[in-house]
Structures are given as C-alpha cells and as structure tokens.
C-alpha cells in the first residue's frame, strides 16, 4: 500500500544561506523505523530535484525519534538574493510530505 508521508509524519522547513533543512517526525513513534527504512537521502533528493541541486545529507535521531534532511544548493542563489516567491523555502516541508512510500 502506497501512502503519502503526510499521513504518518510532520515536517518543518528551515534555511541557512542556500541550505534547506527539513525535519521529518512521525506522529506516532512506532512509525519511526518505517520512516528510517523508507525515506533515504537519495529518495528525498530525487523527490525534490526541481529545487535541490546539491547533496542531501540525512541525520537519524533515535533519541528524538526524528530525522533531518540537510539539502545543499536548494534555495536558488540563497535566501537574500533569490528570485523565488518563497525564497526561504518555508513551504518545502509540505513538498517532502507529498512523497509516497
């Protein structure tokens, strides 16, 4: 059964320069292992390929039951000079949650 990440997890987007940072947190801790096995850095990079031009690094945080994806070259020329409507990439958390697993 395929389902969107949005059905089991939530996310917040943050930015630093040209780096986009996305957290991925299961609503229920029992789904953490599923997320860890299904949502790899490669899959996130492929899913967000329209925006993310650089590397994606994944951090797994078992104590917090959360993951984080640090996406390089993801905000055009960077927050302060980008022509994008959402230059901070703040809406990108919901792009991640559109991913199907």
């Amino acid at each position: 059964m395929r389902r969107k990440l949005a059905t089991i997890a939530h996310s917040r987007a943050g930015d630093k320069g040209n780096i986009l940072i996305l957290s991925l947190i299961p609503f229920e801790e029992k789904d953490f292992d599923l997320l860890v096995s299904a949502v790899t850095a490669e899959k996130v990079k492929n899913h967000l390929k329209d925006q993310v031009k650089g590397e994606v690094i994944r951090y797994v945080l078992p104590e917090l039951k959360a993951m984080q994806f640090t996406c390089f070259e993801a905000l055009g020329t960077g927050v302060t000079t980008s022509l994008a409507l959402d230059s901070h990439g703040k809406s990108m958390s919901y792009a991640l949650l559109e991913m199907e697993i």
Binding site: H10, G14, I19, I21, S23, I25, L61, L64, Q68
Partner: peptide
C-alpha cells in the same frame, strides 16, 4: 518542540 529543536540546524550533532 521537536519541530523547533531541528529548525535551521544544519548538523544536529
């Protein structure tokens, strides 16, 4: 709190 803890953090460690 979890969402905020990881907000704008490039490397959690």
């Amino acid at each position: 709190a979890k969402e905020q803890l990881l907000y704008e953090v490039i490397e959690p460690g």
